[in-house]
């Protein structure tokens, strides 16, 4: 799927998320939420609501997992 690089967004790798939801608590725009579903490890992974991300990166630095969150900032 081709992404529009002018729109910031966050991508969560479901199977790398441990469901701690620190990202959910940290997100200033409240665009992250517990998914209510479980990944293959059994964690209630976080998901992006699909819009509203401002690319601030706060979730990235709140997440303890090296690769669970990728943040695409607005292309400068």
């Amino acid at each position: 799927m081709k992404q529009d690089s002018s729109v910031p967004r966050v991508e969560i790798r479901i199977n790398e998320c441990k469901g701690c939801h620190l990202c959910v608590a940290a997100c200033p725009k409240k665009v992250l939420t517990p998914s209510g579903s479980f990944n293959n490890q059994g964690y209630n992974y976080a998901k992006y609501k699909g819009e509203g991300c401002i690319g601030c990166g706060i979730c990235f630095y709140s997440c303890p997992e090296p690769g669970a969150i990728t943040v695409y900032k607005k292309e400068s």
């Binding site: 441990k18 469901g19 701690c20 939801h21 620190l22 964690y43 990235f60 630095y61 709140s62 997440c63 303890p64 997992e65 090296p66």
Partner: peptide
């Protein structure tokens, strides 16, 4: 889940 070590590692 939620451990500070991972955050510091990053």
């Amino acid at each position: 889940p939620g451990c500070g070590h991972g955050i510091l590692h990053k």
